[in-house]
């Protein structure tokens, strides 16, 4: 997936701001986290924090993003290695598919 475009930038901002809402801006800046940062190791998030972030993003995107099928396919190692960029990519993909579905339904 190419990392450009208005949608990608918007989603990246939303994802990062959601993480900041959960962990605090000071801690986020201390982490110097970026797209390649892992939730479990680089940002040291607990599972309850990852769950809260996922739920806030579900609310933010009003049902256009469903993390459950995605997480359900992951092994424990995948969860440990999950990055901010992975989540951004997933949300972008979900929103694009939702838009394509809406266009198809009105065609």
């Amino acid at each position: 997936m190419t990392r450009d475009g208005a949608l990608y930038a918007s989603v990246r901002t939303t994802v990062e701001e959601t993480i900041i809402d959960v962990v605090g801006r000071v801690y986020w800046e201390e982490c110097q986290a970026g797209l390649d940062s892992t939730f479990a190791v680089d940002i040291e998030l607990e599972s309850m924090e990852v769950m809260e972030i996922a739920e806030r993003l579900i609310d933010a995107y009003e049902g256009r993003v469903d993390f459950i099928p995605w997480f359900s396919d992951m092994e424990l190692d995948d969860l440990i290695e999950l990055t901010v960029g992975d989540v951004v990519d997933f949300v972008v993909d979900s929103v694009e598919r939702s838009r394509a579905g809406a266009v198809a339904r009105t065609a």
Binding site: S47, M48, V50, M51, I68, S72, M74
Partner: peptide, 16 residues
């Protein structure tokens, strides 16, 4: 602990 760890490792995979 709470239920979040089990959600990711067991609950979501078994949801199918």
């Amino acid at each position: 602990v709470d239920h979040s760890g089990l959600s990711f490792t067991l609950g979501m995979p078994l949801a199918t």
